[in-house]
Amino acid sequence: MTDIDAAIRQVLEVHGRLGAVVASLKNDDDLYQKGLSSHACVNVMLAIEDAFEIEIPEAFLTRATFRTIDSIRETVESLGLTNGLG
């Protein structure tokens, strides 16, 4: 697991309201199917920005961006963060 993945999982654990599920999540699991609500998703979005010290552009603030751990990582990486935490 990369540092980025670990940080995303930590955000999901604190803000995702997913209960004990986070530890057993696969990187391509659909987080919405695992119980991520829209309200929790917005909190995850804000916490991801804090954790990586980035501001996700409006165009990426969609449900698709936060559907899986992989998609969150891809977004974070696409914003220029490729080597561990910001």
Binding site: S38, V42, M45, E58, L61, T62, R63
Partner: peptide
């Protein structure tokens, strides 16, 4: 911010 996520949800 987050409006689209809520609406799409």
């Amino acid at each position: 911010r987050g409006a689209q996520i809520m609406a799409q949800g």
